[in-house]
């Protein structure tokens, strides 16, 4: 299944839709090209099983490999801490989204606004709406979802993938980031 259509079928986005990521290497290139990427990890990262691991474990590997700051939303920070990983920040999804849309926000570290926000592990409809808010109102920000389902409100999204293909894509991204490619 490789469809660039919304996972929840009634969610019809409008004219501006996410570009489809056909290869994981595209994600690597996007991250490399970004000056200030940030990774937003949602409340489902510790729930979703993906090819024998929890999604949160992929997130941690990716964050480490790409040296990407992580914001844990909802109560997920505890799950990261249990795994010995301290996110750069934790706050509600609506709070981080509200800050990302503000061009004057200086970021978690005070070094300026972010130019690429990667999203992963939220309820589909939550991510849908947050990405829509950013699409319309965060002019200088590009968004990329790493979820295995198509999110048309992002700037870039995978099509809807099988769990196996999703896991494979995430592994490729992590490997290439680790290799510095």
């Amino acid at each position: 299944m490789m469809k660039a259509e919304p996972w929840q079928k009634a969610e019809i986005p409008g004219p501006k839709k996410a570009l489809v990521i056909t290869k994981p290497e595209v994600v690597v290139a996007m991250i490399k090209r970004a000056k200030r990427p940030i990774l937003i990890a949602g409340s489902k990262v510790a729930e979703i099983d993906i090819a024998g691991e929890k999604l949160i474990d992929y997130v941690i590997k990716l964050a480490k490999a790409g040296k990407i700051p992580v914001v844990a939303t909802a109560h997920t920070v505890g799950e990261f801490l249990k795994r010995g990983f301290k996110p750069d920040g934790f706050m509600p999804i609506v709070d981080i989204a509200n800050r990302l849309k503000d061009p004057e926000w200086e970021g978690l570290d005070g070094n300026g606004p972010y130019d690429l926000a990667l999203f992963i592990g939220m309820q589909y409809y939550v991510e849908w709406l947050i990405l829509s808010g950013l699409k319309h109102f965060a002019g200088g920000l590009k968004t990329l979802t790493l979820d295995g389902v198509y999110h048309p409100h992002a700037s870039w999204s995978f099509p809807t993938l099988s769990i196996e293909d999703w896991a494979k894509n995430l592994r490729v991204i992590i490997e290439k980031m680790e290799a510095g490619m």
Partner: peptide
């Protein structure tokens, strides 16, 4: 207000 449109239209 922080708006999150369902769709673009």
């Amino acid at each position: 207000p922080f708006y999150m449109p369902f769709c673009d239209v």
